[in-house]
Write a protein that binds this DNA or RNA. Structure first.
Length: 852
RNA sequence: GCUGGCGUGGUGGAAUGGUAGACACAACAGACUUAAAAUCUGUUGGCCUUCGAGCCGUGCGGGUUCAAGUCCCGCCGCCAGUACCA
């Protein structure tokens, strides 16, 4: 480690101010009805995506978003808002369970240790969190309400007519049977194929598979009985209600595509008198369907396969079943399939077309059967060419299109009564025709699948469910939280039997009643933590009505949280799941907004100095503790904001940290100098004098720009303006105290320790300086008058090229400016012999003389 | 393949259609110092120069405009996400 050269004593005053904030609970904010709550202030809710407290501690990527929200928090406080800015821990998770398997120690212990380390690190950065509202998803008091919300889902169904969730009790009142009701619940049990890892002892979400495989674990595909959440019921609302949110377009698009709405039609074909329904987005190409493909798992396959094809079909089905979805796509370079021997009848023209099975058709989407139109679908085209199936053109491409297989909109041909119609017209007409004949109907399909919600882990919320006579039953609210019992060992069972099944006493309730042994995934706790922060200590409800209505108030927008900052990795998972839960809670009347997060900002990844993604194996990971030790928390905060735009991916540079460190040292030296003995004393340049014009100008321009830039979350440019201001002040022989204090004010949200320290020192020596902490004082106002200059420099262009610069009086009219410009000697030499055609004057900026 | 995003000095980056390169890093030169560090000052896109200036320059090729890094069209490259979704 390099020798520390202390240019200012950050290692003394940073811990001092952190203790001061902690002791005074400076950043704790009361709820409505509590002592000290100021009803006159508007609210502002600034939220960070809470971290998983991993064993390796904070990464420099964490403080990037956290510093951004911290600046906003401090700035909004200074502008008169009640600001809610909390932090907590997404603490369930596989790593803690892995640790438990290795050591036999309860995962809670490891989790607590990691949380303590994370909390210490965050506090060492001086963030303005309200630590009284700290939330931990593994805390029994929190688990209780996660399970309570699950029961809300369990006890609800989705009413299609009203397009919202409603209580199950309504169905019971109608006299519906238990079986009918169980088919409608938002939380239900179903047998589905899942990613099962025997050595991890759990199923994994699709997106988790790669990560664990890379670490050497095996993952296989097998059908299991699982808890599912009916997120598909909300598919349309999850798309439509993105509309009013202030989110990056890319994220909205990602969610929209993930949900994957496609409009089309279901069309009924017949095979040996048996009806087969296909889904297509291009019903207008029905005349071009030259074969049909069924998914290998399609229930009709066995029925229609002829004896001659039986062996081939059976073999093909076996090959497909042995492949995971992943392998199925990895090996997807070449189309494969087998003819069943059966023929389907095309309802539009009575033609007999061969029926194939192929793995490019998925049982899980649409109807698991397609009509193949090789002339106008790339996949069908590839397949037909490989197997020599007829290709009939039924859409004429627009003039000039040379595509081998045209998939766009054109004009219908070879299509009987559709001929001559444009694609949209043809779609409409054929759908009307099918509906009239009872051969099909307009349909909407979504890619989104219901959410597989159970895991076989230990370290997760147990389901508050018991089984009696083969039926599931909810635990009464009074029995929550239901906590997992301690286990002798946490080793996986090796079978898909959940780990909790080892706790036989806990599971077996007598009389044949048994507990559900699956646990919830980590997403459960993170789906509603932003609500819990509003009322973190409440033990009679997840959140009180009053707290919800204040902190999650709409203020004219659909979302309750005013600003949510975090990484893009949660674009479709957490952000979709949380929206879904929120909508259910909204439908049931527990929350007052249809959306949880109004404004979303994604911070960009911080790369290593080598431009590669930071990773232990590359050895390019930067530890924030080390940076704080060498340069202080303010330097780390400031550097992360100065690197570039928040949303952008950018590489770390220790030299860059030194740069902002030098800047903070310059600010320090505005106030403090070191004397012969090396002790700090007040700078002799400081004086309680009126700033001159130039000083006022730069200081007030800084107030304005920093405020505007914080609003726009353009922190890097705000910092550069403060650097400009500091450089100007450094040049002065006599330094007005008021100007220095103003600079400290605007710098405070960025570098709170240094600025509070200097302000406190100045307050002792100068009567004009308030002894109050900067964070409790209002944001300084700028005076527009100071920004106006008597003379402004204007650029003179001839034919768009800069030829001269002149000073003109501020109040000069366009005509006067034009005259002055034309008088310029340099301009004269460039327009000599030319005719001036036009003169454009942009007030305060430039003059462009057009001549030829 | 598809969908997004992005291409500006040696580097990170700045620029309501209006002076391209703010601010910072690195580099070089100088001041201070016995010396180094720290600090301060200056230079730093390229070409050319008679030292006044001039010419070129924001991935490439076109276009719109008095004026384009910025808007439009067509390419090329990089990054991210996604993948047989009918």
């Amino acid at each position: 480690m390099a020798e520390r050269r202390k240019q200012f004593p950050f290692d003394e005053f940073e811990p001092k101010w952190q203790n001061h904030w902690e002791e005074n609970k400076t950043f704790s904010v009361p709820n409505p009805g509590e002592a000290g709550f100021d009803t006159s202030k508007p609210k502002y809710y600034v939220l960070d995506m809470f971290p998983y407290p991993s064993g390796s501690g904070l990464h420099v990527g964490h403080p990037e978003g956290y510093t951004a929200t911290d600046i906003i928090t401090r700035y909004k406080r200074m502008n008169g808002f009640n600001v809610l800015h909390p932090m907590g821990w997404d603490a369930f998770g596989l790593p803690a369970e892995q640790h438990a398997i290795k050591t036999g120690e309860h995962p809670r212990i490891n989790t607590e240790n990691n949380i303590n380390n994370f909390r210490r690190q965050l506090k060492s950065l001086g963030f303005a969190y309200d630590w009284d509202r700290e939330v931990n998803t593994t805390d029994p008091a929190y688990v209780k309400w996660t399970q309570w919300i699950f029961l809300q889902l369990y006890n609800s169904w989705f009413c299609e007519e009203e397009n919202k969730a409603k209580p199950i009790s309504e169905l019971e009142a109608k006299g519906m049977s238990r079986e009918e009701i169980d088919h409608l619940r938002l939380a239900y049990v179903a047998e589905t194929p899942v990613n099962w890892s025997p050595d991890l002892g759990t199923v994994l979400a699709n997106e988790e598979v790669e990560e664990w495989r890379a670490k050497g674990h095996t993952v296989e595909r097998r059908p299991l009985r699982q808890w599912m959440l009916r997120i598909t019921a909300y598919a349309q609302r999850l798309i439509d209600e993105l509309e009013g949110l202030d989110w990056p377009n890319g994220i909205k698009l990602l969610q929209t595509n993930w949900i994957g709405r496609s409009e089309g039609a279901e069309v009924d074909f017949t095979i040996d008198g048996e009806k087969v329904t296909v889904f297509t987005t291009r019903p207008d190409t029905l005349f071009g369907a030259t074969y049909m493909v069924l998914a290998p798992e399609h229930p009709l396959v066995d029925k229609i396969t002829t004896d001659a094809q039986k062996t081939a079909v059976e073999d093909y089905k076996k090959t497909c079943a042995g492949k995971s979805d992943l392998e199925r796509t990895e090996l997807a370079k070449e189309k494969s399939g087998v003819f069943t021997g059966g023929f389907a009848i095309n309802p539009v023209n009575g033609e007999k077309i061969p029926v194939w099975i192929a793995d490019y058709v998925m049982m899980s989407y649409g109807t698991g059967a397609i009509m193949a139109v090789p002339a106008h679908d790339d996949r069908d085209n590839e397949f037909a060419e490989k197997f020599g199936i007829k290709i009939i053109e039924v859409v004429k491409a627009p003039e000039g299109n040379e595509d081998k297989c045209f998939t766009g909109n054109g004009t219908a041909v070879n299509s009987g009564f559709l001929d001559g119609l444009s694609t949209p017209e043809a779609k409409e007409k054929i759908i009307a025709w099918l509906e009239e004949k009872g051969l099909g109907k307009k349909t909407v399909n979504f890619k989104l699948r219901d959410w597989l919600f159970s895991r076989q882990r230990y370290w997760g919320e147990p389901f508050p469910i018991v089984w009696r006579d083969g039926n599931h039953e909810a635990l009464p609210e009074s029995e929550l939280p239901l906590l997992a019992p301690e286990l002798e060992d946490y080793k996986p069972t090796g079978t898909p039997e959940p780990l909790l099944s080892k706790a036989t006493e806990w599971v077996d309730l007598g009389d044949g009643v048994k507990r559900e042994t699956n646990t919830m995934p980590q997403w459960g706790g993170s789906c509603w933590y932003y609500l819990r922060y509003c009322d973190a200590q409440n033990d009679s409800a997840p959140i009180s009505e009053e707290a919800e209505q204040y902190w999650m108030a709409k203020n004219g927008n659909p979302g309750g949280v005013d600003l949510y900052v975090g990484g893009t990795e949660h674009a479709v998972l957490h952000l979709l799941y949380a929206r879904f839960w929120h909508k259910v809670l909204f439908d049931l009347g527990h929350v007052s907004t249809p959306e949880p997060f109004q404004k979303l900002v994604n911070q960009g990844l911080i790369m290593g100095e080598d431009g590669q993604k930071m990773s232990k194996s590359r050895g390019n990971v930067v530890n924030p503790d080390e940076v704080v030790d060498l340069y202080g928390a303010d330097s780390l905060r400031l550097y992360e904001m100065f690197m570039g735009p928040l949303e952008q991916v950018k590489p770390w540079s220790m030299k860059g940290v030194e740069g902002v460190f030098r800047f903070l040292a310059r600010v320090w030296r505005l106030v403090m100098d070191s004397n012969q003995e090396g002790e700090w004393e007040f700078s002799s340049r400081l004086a309680e004098i009126e700033p001159d014009k130039a000083t006022n100008k730069v200081v007030h321009a800084t107030i304005k720009k920093v405020g505007d830039d914080i609003d726009a979350m353009s922190f890097n440019t705000a910092i550069s303006q403060m650097m400009v201001c500091t450089n100007e002040l450094t040049k002065l022989d006599q330094l007005p105290v008021s100007s220095v204090v103003t600079l400290l004010h605007v710098l405070n949200p960025f570098a709170p320790h240094l600025t509070e320290e200097l302000n406190a020192k100045l307050a002792v020596a100068f009567d004009s300086v308030s002894a109050d902490d900067l964070d409790s004082q209002p944001w300084p106002e700028f005076n527009e008058d100071f920004l106006i200059e008597d003379e402004i420099e204007m650029v003179i262009q001839v034919n768009g090229k800069v030829r001269d610069k002149i000073m003109v009086p501020n109040e000069a009219s366009k005509e006067e400016v034009e005259a002055l410009a034309l008088e310029s000697g340099k301009v004269q030499s460039f327009i000599e012999g030319l005719t001036v055609r036009k003169v454009i004057v942009v007030p305060g900026r430039l003059v462009n003389i057009v001549a030829n």
